[in-house]
Design a protein around this nucleic acid. Structure first.
Lengths: 203, 203, 203, 203
DNA sequence: TATGAATGAGCATTCATTCAT
DNA sequence: AATGAATGAATGCTCATTCAT
């Protein structure tokens, strides 16, 4: 990476960090320039406006955050099914919540709220986050269908079950933000167990 | 309500609405005054600073948002247990998501993020939201313990089950914000059914 | 004094105190009303504007601050002359500097500077303070003329000597404001002694 | 001086002038910017806050205002002693009071009062002015000690005499502010003569 | 005699942005 | 590739003042 690209990347990372700390609107170009160690107008050499810089941060944060990255359906077998669902989820959630994870969660939520606001010119934020979430729901649905084939669950209410899984995963990554200490591993395991339970007769 | 109190209330409601639309920091006193139909300094007659006004909005939003308001444990019997859990939850979630509910959810999340930011002097926001969420977890735990007495679930992993319920309820009210259309009723029913399932053998 | 007059007086005294603490412009009507224990518009019942209130404070502070109040020329005799000059001056200066004296000095200086400013509509402040100071110079001149008759000093440079006395007295009361600790009594005594010295042959 | 430094200096001088005319608090950044011929935010490019700008004005005004600048003790001899004290003092006082001198005196007094106020966060103003004044007292003391060696005065009450000289010099530069026309030269000469007079037998 | 409610003008400060260099 | 200098627009806030009651 040449020097120019390195500066561009440093601006991106610093901005992400500052958005996590101060929010999108309060993370000012002065702050960013200061943290990066350059002068304010220099940012405009790399990003034509704050809006574009913020867009770049969003794209950077979202890139690679997908169901497929954590759950590889074709690796699931009858034998490893339950345990692999648990461990794949825990991989996403992390054994313990790291600062980086907290940052990503905080920033994603910043964008989610920002994208819902009137002032935001880029409603794309919400749509893209929606797409990612729907990706998780669809992914879990496909996974559960496979699980049904394996006999790990019955066929009723599969979509709802997929939703429960996606919602719980989402919320488990959000809870540290509130400061609530959960046994993430236990809750996720319990969720899987509950959801797969064949007695769950949904009408 | 006299005229003065009406103005105070109008400022409060307008601010809530504007925070939902533009965020806490971008909801400026000019905007608020303009929307209310008064001049900017008049706001200071009712609230001594923007911070205090924002605090009042927070208190107003949070007031009455508690487990006990929606789930009356002592009304649960062996016979109505499952259906009452479902219906009490649905009462909180609402048959269909109203604009007001959307507003409350958006604003609560604004406060959650705002309270996490460095610049915010009022970390109390996060703590109070945390308390409410913990109230739901504790409430569901007590409810599940009663459920166990009734034989509706077994005693293992009660706390984790309570967490799943609280998380799901929280996320179900958050999802509309992303724009995902869920069969809220079905998902909540499925969650209850899954969680209560006796086969859930948590180790 | 009836209640109304008492309130009027309390406003006056409070304003004087606050001007001493915060300056004329920063002593706001809010602060004054707050300190007095009334509401802001109530001040207008007693004083038609802030300017008029400030004028009243000025008049109140200046009233009774004159040469004649401290130096009664007709009581001076050949025998008591020097010692009476010293003691009369010390009476004005005070044995030790009291808070009230500090307040008066600070406030007078506030008015002196305020009166010199462009923004001040009332240039009268400076003129009235000037009159008082000239009163002291003239007073000392008459006193020194009497002293010459008594043979305590010679006739040369009497006006200049009067000026030195007036200036020194003024400055001795101002110095505490700077925080310089002086043996006020000794300096004043020395000034009198120096000034009266017959050997001072002024050309 | 390049253009940038010229602007910085122009801001400094304009602010000094406006403080002299309107006081520290009423000399607003709008006024300053307007007078300089720039826009308000541009001031922030040179001074990070109004407080810092005001500090800079204070430092600029005080710089070079010291006893040593006007009285070079080592140049005093037995023969030139009295006349040099007179002429050095007159050099400080100026033959006639110029507008610049008036401005400096007014501004210094603005700072003295400002530094005494509760609201002022920078009590340093008073301390620095105090240091300068004490510098004059100490300087005159050293000078008088030299004068005693030369036989121009006796050893009694030297410190009090030094105070009289410092006070008088200070007040002579302050008097024009009140508008009193004095024969500055004559008064200063008389003060020196009086103070040096050997007959001044201070007990 | 006093005040609750309101306001126009002004304040210091911050911001994203521009542009010549 | 980067920046020094500058700015229009907006922010939260304070002020003296008004006026109906």
């Amino acid at each position: 990476m040449n020097k120019s690209e390195a500066t561009r990347q440093k601006i991106l990372e610093t901005t992400t960090w500052l958005i996590g700390q101060y929010g999108i609107e309060k993370a000012s170009l002065s702050m960013i320039a200061n943290s990066v160690g350059i002068q304010k107008p220099s940012i405009y050499y790399y990003y034509s406006s704050k809006e574009q810089l913020v867009d770049a941060v969003f794209a950077w944060i979202l890139e690679g955050y997908s169901f497929e990255k954590y759950f590889q359906i074709n690796e699931y077998t009858k034998n490893n099914f339950v345990e692999k669902m648990i461990s794949d989820g825990l991989q996403l959630l992390g054994e313990e919540t790291t600062d980086t994870q907290m940052l990503v969660v905080q920033v994603l939520n910043e964008f989610l709220l920002y994208g819902n606001r009137e002032s935001s010119h880029n409603k794309g934020y919400r749509l893209k986050i929606k797409a990612v979430q729907e990706g998780f729901i669809d992914g879990f649905l496909r996974l559960l269908q496979k699980g049904e084939e394996f006999g790990h669950t019955d066929s009723k209410g599969l979509r709802e079950k997929a939703c429960v899984l996606a919602l719980t995963l989402d919320n488990l990554s959000n809870y540290p933000m509130i400061g609530i200490q959960l046994d993430v591993s236990a809750v996720w395991r319990e969720t899987i167990t509950s959801v797969l339970s064949k007695k769950g007769d949904f009408k």
